[in-house]
Write a protein that binds this DNA or RNA. Sequence first.
DNA 1: CCGGTCAATGACCACTCGGTCATCCTAATC
DNA 2: GATTAGGATGACCGAGTGGTCATTGACCGG
Lengths: 229, 229
Amino acid sequence: MSTSPITGTRLFRSLAPEKRDKVFRAAVREFASKGYRNASMNSVVKVARISKGSLFQYFRTKRDLFDGVVEMAVIEVKNYLKQVREDTNNMSFFDRLSRLIRAGFEFIDNHPLLARIYFHLIQSGETPFGVERMLQLHKLSDEFMADLIRDAIGRGEIRSDLDVERVAFLVNSLMETLLRAYYTEFMASGLGLYRGDGAELDRWIETFLELVSRGMEVPRDAEKFRACT
Amino acid sequence: MSTSPITGTRLFRSLAPEKRDKVFRAAVREFASKGYRNASMNSVVKVARISKGSLFQYFRTKRDLFDGVVEMAVIEVKNYLKQVREDTNNMSFFDRLSRLIRAGFEFIDNHPLLARIYFHLIQSGETPFGVERMLQLHKLSDEFMADLIRDAIGRGEIRSDLDVERVAFLVNSLMETLLRAYYTEFMASGLGLYRGDGAELDRWIETFLELVSRGMEVPRDAEKFRACT
DNA sequence: CCGGTCAATGACCACTCGGTCATCCTAATC
DNA sequence: GATTAGGATGACCGAGTGGTCATTGACCGG
């Protein structure tokens, strides 16, 4: 969760875990609050209370350090998705969706900095990554949603005439907006979503599910009803 | 559209329109491609082929220049919203929504740089603006959508039990995602949305409307159907 | 032809950035 | 105690930043 022995130079990986964590945490904090370009190695050094030379012996470049942090964040997100999938395997689609969002809120509560890095990464084009890597990241969550939808179609819970990939993209982006607005002050704080309490979040989830399940249109079952009489 | 005599120092406003445009365009280009913090006054100077001293006589600070550019972008967006509202005044809600998105695509085609600045502004927290100003910007489009929805409810076109503000926020964010993915390579280029042609875009709009109008759930009129037989 | 006005100019300032490297320090080995 | 190996250190580098200001020169009324 906090230590990641995969990244950095041999020297960094052979460091005492406590020191390794100190450095890594400082890096996470810095990138989370400033993004990639505006993050400063000098700041990391200051916060971690090590010398600049040491940091560059642990990570050859700023880019390397960022890669390490991102890798860790992505692993964390993957685990969270996997966990939700397992926990909700036998639920109905919309219950699953509900749990997915709720777990998202919890993830943000538990790893606010990692969440910030992850969302910053997939939303702002200012990352140093190539297009390929970015597409791959988006596919991670989009494909997850698509799988959930396909499952539900297989079980006859939702309409089978849906364009799965497209709908998955839309529903997923809707969910991501919800999560982002939960920790972003200027998006929907007037609507009680920003750092909302449990009850407030429940109302949002309900509205969200209502929208994607039944839609906004006035139910038109009157026609079929008429047809059978 | 291109000239905005509102911003900058008296000197700037009294410049020959052609020169004023040259400077302003260079600034728009710079901010659009690099965001606020990473934009460089030196770059603007180079592109506009004026001296650095001059630029700082036209705009006292980088921040002032950015404010001017943003103000212009926001005005442009407001006009576009107003235009759509007028053009679609007598249409049904979902037709209006369709037109709104289509107009959004066109706006991006016609003002790619302004669109970039606008979306960059409302999505990335790295702007120099205060929270108040950001909230205000979000409310601009959210309130627009809320009005459309209230209209439609008044006409009985969509369900009256909707939580208007919340639904407006969700639908609006969905639309914004669609627009953003249209010019952002790494979001959904695998799904044909990125710079998609007319037919491709039509399919996306259709999927979008299907989702928000009828939802994903299997129509449950079967019960009523059974009840009447 | 003069004096005055004012926009244009780019050298310059203090600062920050990512990154380097000669030097120092410590701890183990002989 | 002497030698050595290797991690820690921070002064230093070149580049780039936003911003300033003394100087220049074009223009204009008298």
